[in-house]
Nucleic acid binder design. Structure first.
Length: 276
DNA sequence: AGTAAACTCCGGAAGC
DNA sequence: TGCTTCCGGAGTTTAC
């Protein structure tokens, strides 16, 4: 499941291969994966050149010459790859972009279709492009911004998972960052001490950065014995470790449902707030 | 108004 | 082998 680190890895790969390519043709397998700018994407984008590939939160942003942009969200099961046009199409490949004079193409596949594509032209309203409501990027989050984000009475886990508040944190790294900062996921966001906010900002950045570094190994086509890409094998602190020993104190990691999500934490290191 | 929880989309994977 | 159940990012709806 792609989280910010995997998205960043994909972006880095694409940024090395796509800029400069001129779009020759856009092949759409399913209309409904394009949430806005359908005509722009399949017709007017033809002839445009790819200027850059970047990332905002967990969204991939492909900038075209002329100011249009294509936004791709991978959701749970999305993959964005560059493959030879002769290679067999994987099932659930919904979008392909071909380029002038090139024998490879950009492919978007997404079996569960939790992901999607938005396209907008220069000057188009930001609404509906999948970017307009995103909060500040988690990878670059800084204390003053985080303090502002946390100024509401809501479970910290729910706030961190809300892409409008802060963008880029998914379930795995949310749990990881909270454990690293020794904060219980149920803690009301506005009750964090300045010290805790400092620790949390640090934890969010360092957790994501470490995962990106680990993901770098998949850039070199690294796979472990099980075929898993590099970043997935980073040793998680709590995620997926229910019942196992906390790496800090040895207590058994607990799993429960918080903010509608499976949540892992250490009951000893992450003290539950006193309920009022 | 702000927050919380339920519901929805979908198919892979795990469990029986 | 074949069925059922679980899972989840995020938008929407409903309820406190």
């Amino acid at each position: 499941m792609p989280e910010l680190p995997e998205v960043q890895t994909v972006v880095t790969q694409l940024a090395g291969r796509l800029p400069g390519a001129t779009i020759a043709r856009v092949l759409l397998g399913r209309r409904d994966i394009v949430h806005s700018g359908h005509r722009l994407l399949t017709r007017e984008a033809v002839g445009a050149k790819i200027a850059s590939v970047g990332r905002v939160g967990k969204r991939i942003v492909i900038q075209l010459s002329g100011g249009a942009e294509i936004v791709v969200h991978l959701g749970m099961s999305g993959r964005l790859t560059v493959e030879p046009i002769d290679d067999a199409l994987a099932p659930h490949t919904h979008l392909r972009v071909r380029f002038v004079g090139r024998m490879d193409e950009l492919r978007f596949r997404d079996p569960r279709r939790f992901g999607g594509v938005w396209c907008r032209g220069r000057g188009d309203d930001a609404n509906g492009n999948g970017l307009s409501v995103l909060g500040p990027d988690a990878l670059a989050i800084r204390v003053p911004v985080l303090r502002q984000v946390l100024s509401r009475r809501r479970q910290i886990k729910a706030v961190l998972m809300d892409q409008r508040m802060i963008s880029g944190l998914g379930n795995i790294y949310c749990d990881e960052a909270l454990h690293k900062a020794a904060i219980h996921p149920l803690t009301p966001a506005d009750s964090l001490t300045p010290k805790q906010i400092n620790r949390l900002a640090c934890s969010i950045r360092s957790t994501l950065q470490a995962a990106i570094r680990a993901g770098g190994s998949s850039l070199r086509d690294y796979r472990d014995a099980n075929g898993e890409p590099g970043w997935f094998q980073v040793s998680h602190r709590v995620y997926g470790r229910e019942g196992e020993a906390c790496r800090s104190c040895g207590s058994a990691i607990v799993r429960s449902q918080i903010a509608g999500r499976s949540t892992h934490y250490c009951p000893a290191c992450q003290k539950e707030p006193v309920t009022t």
